Amino acid sequence: MTDLTDPSPWTGSSDDPNDEQFGDVVETATLATADEYDVVLVGEPYDGAVIGRPGARAGPAALRRELGGTKTHHIERGPVRSVADLGDIEIPAGGVERVQSAVRSITAEIHATGAVPVFLGGDNSLTFPNAAPLLAHETVGAVSFDAHLDCRAVRDEPTSGTPYRQLHDAGLDTLAVVGARHFETSTAYHDYLAEQGGTVLPPASVAGDPAGAVDDALAALGDVDAVYVSLDLDVLDAAAAPGVSAPTPGGLSTRELFRMLGRVASDDRIAGFEIVECAPPLDAGNRTARAGARAVAHFLSGLGGDR
């Protein structure tokens, strides 16, 4: 049976006693103690289903390293608190369907705790087992920050391009994709998402009013009971995030993304968050991992806050 590895203790990198970093405040926990925290981090070192370039299996370690050295204080919202690390999900050998099934068995237990899970990926194929446990209990909408729609049909096996088709087949009520690029996803998949009542907000819809774009995405979900948020780092412009499976120009700026993540996290229906496709072997100067860690920090700062 798939399990969680023991998490390593976190430490900050600063020698200034006035510097409080995530490395100073993130504690280690188990499934039995997870409900003592607002948020639990979960690593998913896997890229066996990626359509593009592999490397995301190294994402969790890089994101933890960069987050550990990030200060906890948000200027408007104050410091982030009550975060624990559950370790990494042990990824079994075998095909993608087996991996998804094994991961889902653990994510179901994590969702059953009182904490909001933050999954550190890993490739986008794990979006399906990360969010699927929510479908058994509630109406669920997803907000996906992504350059692509990721609703391809499953052929031989699932891939990093199929998770939202799988989720819709399993009962996902609706999906809003923020930052999807022109000329990146074929007509058939745009038509499919439209048939499901989905919404696409390209980068031009974000520019100038990121908060308004998030409000539009959340409004498009209607009155669902739970909201799952996914961040594929390829939503950022390739200059800001070169270390992803499929970097492309014309994406969001880090400033736009951070503003939107803090705002979407303030929705009181948030039931989970993930960050996927951080691929350190493909990165340049740790830019992608650093942007990803800041994205996590901004999301955490917004949880439970005012919009």
Rank of each mutant, 00 (worst) to 15 (best):
residue 71 K to C: 01
residue 56 A to M: 04
residue 152 R to A: 09
residue 193 L to F: 03
residue 268 D to P: 08
residue 240 A to Q: 08
residue 77 R to M: 12
residue 18 N to K: 14
residue 111 H to F: 02
residue 194 A to E: 14
residue 94 G to V: 05
residue 260 M to H: 02
residue 164 Y to R: 04
residue 227 V to Y: 00
residue 305 G to S: 15
residue 300 L to Q: 02
residue 32 A to C: 03
residue 86 L to T: 13
residue 19 D to M: 08
residue 34 A to Q: 11
residue 120 L to E: 00
residue 85 D to Y: 00
residue 158 P to C: 00
residue 210 P to G: 04
residue 40 V to Q: 02
residue 186 S to V: 14
residue 27 E to Q: 15
residue 17 P to I: 01
residue 87 G to P: 04
residue 40 V to R: 02
residue 264 V to R: 05
residue 278 C to I: 15
residue 204 A to Q: 15
residue 290 R to K: 05
residue 69 G to I: 02
residue 207 A to C: 06
residue 193 L to W: 02
residue 247 P to Y: 02
residue 153 A to Q: 15
residue 155 R to N: 12
residue 205 S to Q: 14
residue 62 A to K: 07
residue 300 L to H: 02
residue 72 T to A: 00
residue 265 A to R: 00
residue 290 R to I: 10
residue 63 L to T: 07
residue 200 V to D: 11
residue 75 I to G: 08
residue 42 V to R: 07
residue 202 P to A: 12
residue 158 P to S: 00
residue 160 S to Y: 00
residue 44 E to P: 11
residue 2 T to I: 10
residue 181 R to Q: 09
residue 264 V to E: 05
residue 264 V to T: 07
residue 242 P to M: 13
residue 233 L to A: 01
residue 115 A to T: 15
residue 58 A to N: 13
residue 300 L to M: 04
residue 193 L to Y: 03
residue 278 C to L: 15
residue 155 R to S: 08
residue 29 A to G: 12
residue 107 T to Q: 02
residue 205 S to L: 11
residue 146 D to R: 10
residue 224 V to P: 15
residue 267 D to F: 07
residue 86 L to M: 12
residue 57 R to Y: 03
residue 75 I to V: 14
residue 265 A to G: 05
residue 38 D to A: 09
residue 196 Q to T: 06
residue 126 L to F: 13
residue 58 A to L: 13
residue 289 A to T: 06
residue 87 G to L: 06
residue 167 L to V: 09
residue 256 E to H: 06
residue 10 W to D: 12
residue 65 R to A: 12
residue 285 G to M: 14
residue 50 V to K: 14
residue 24 D to L: 05
residue 210 P to W: 00
residue 244 V to N: 04
residue 271 A to T: 07
residue 87 G to R: 04
residue 76 E to G: 15
residue 185 T to M: 01
residue 68 G to T: 01
residue 63 L to S: 08
residue 227 V to T: 08
residue 139 T to N: 05
residue 231 L to H: 05
residue 136 A to M: 11
residue 79 P to D: 07
residue 164 Y to K: 04
residue 160 S to F: 00
residue 291 A to G: 05
residue 93 A to G: 08
